[in-house]
């Protein structure tokens, strides 16, 4: 994977990749090509199979069927060679709570195979880059959620990975912290890191990903650059209203969706929606550009589908 001949070959290839837990197909016939230096966002509701797919990539579970290669190697059989070049930020924080920040990183650096001196050097650099130097001696319990998450990112970078896997990196964090983490991840992207990102935040996927894959019930149901997806699958504008008892007959060119107490009207132009807006006596109404969230909801359904 070092030589230039194979440089543009996909880093990850999956064909019909399937993982079954008993009867449940958590990952169901996934086809995937991840190019080097690509940042790919996996979007999907809870239980869609995002984490399971990531776990297949770093050999934490064996596939049930299909093909998977990572760096041209076979997961499980060659997990040592593969994982030496992967960094993982897990969905659940799993730093050693008894230790302080620097100790947590040191312990992980040793797992990765760094010697003590290299480990200390990289830990200092990573803590500095993520503005955590002042917290080096703090117990994990004493750190805020955002700091712990940044520490998880630092930990995943200790071995200088070629591929970074981020499983819901900013779930549950406040907006400031999320933006700071995105900035850090964009730094990494600029440096040429290949990134797999799972999230159920559309803005996160849109901000960071060259390409998003929308997953539902173990399948990839849609894939493409975030803006292309919106253009390809939705009208340009949407009027979102709630509390409208009856919907009047609609002009041609307006598409209507109903979910819960909300109604969505889509159209290619703004004008007919503007007119509709005035006709409807809605408690709440907003006329806006259609976005990735609308695409997501269109394809995964607007009800609860867990």
């Amino acid at each position: 994977m070092e030589d230039s001949a194979t440089h543009s070959a996909p880093l990850i290839i999956a064909r019909g990749l399937t993982k079954q837990f008993g009867e449940l197909k958590a990952v169901d016939g996934v086809d995937l090509d991840i190019a080097p230096n690509e940042c790919v966002g996996f979007l999907g509701p809870n239980g869609a199979g995002k984490t399971t797919l990531m776990r297949l990539v770093f050999s934490a579970i064996a596939k049930t069927a299909g093909e998977l290669t990572v760096f041209g190697l076979t997961p499980m059989e060659q997990r040592k060679q593969i994982n030496a070049h992967i960094g993982v930020v897990f969905q659940d924080n799993n730093l050693d709570e008894e230790l302080n920040a620097a100790e947590c990183l040191l312990v992980h650096a040793l797992y990765c195979g760094l010697d003590h001196r290299t480990a200390r050097r990289r830990i200092a650099a990573l803590l500095d880059w993520l503005s955590l130097t002042a917290k080096a001696d703090s117990r994990i319990r004493a750190l805020s959620g955002g700091m712990v998450r940044r520490l998880m990112i630092a930990r995943a970078l200790l071995n200088s990975p070629k591929l970074l896997i981020l499983d819901e990196p900013t779930t549950g964090l406040d907006p400031q912290v999320r933006h700071a983490i995105w900035a850090a991840l964009r730094d990494l992207k600029r440096q040429g890191m290949t990134i797999l990102l799972t999230t159920h935040y559309m803005d996160e996927a849109q901000q960071l990903s060259d390409r998003v894959l929308i997953m539902d019930r173990g399948r990839i149901i849609l894939s493409g650059p975030p803006n292309d997806l919106v253009e390809a699958h939705l009208e340009r504008y949407v009027l979102q209203v709630s509390g409208v008892p009856t919907v009047p007959p609609l002009d041609g060119g307006i598409r209507h969706e109903h979910a819960g107490d909300a109604d969505y009207f889509y159209a290619a132009a703004e004008q007919p929606l503007q007119a509709l807006h005035e006709r409807l006596a809605a408690k709440y109404a907003i006329l806006r550009h259609a976005n990735l969230e609308d695409v997501f909801l269109k394809f995964t359904g607007r009800g609860f589908n867990e």
């Binding site: 500095d128 880059w129 200088s160």
Partner: peptide, 21 residues
């Protein structure tokens, strides 16, 4: 947080020897 992206970060991308024994 990413005040010194270029330098600090490229240092982090130096290839390192991993002891996998």
């Amino acid at each position: 947080m990413s005040s010194s992206p270029a330098n600090g970060l490229s240092e982090l991308h130096q290839p390192i020897r991993l002891r996998t024994s």
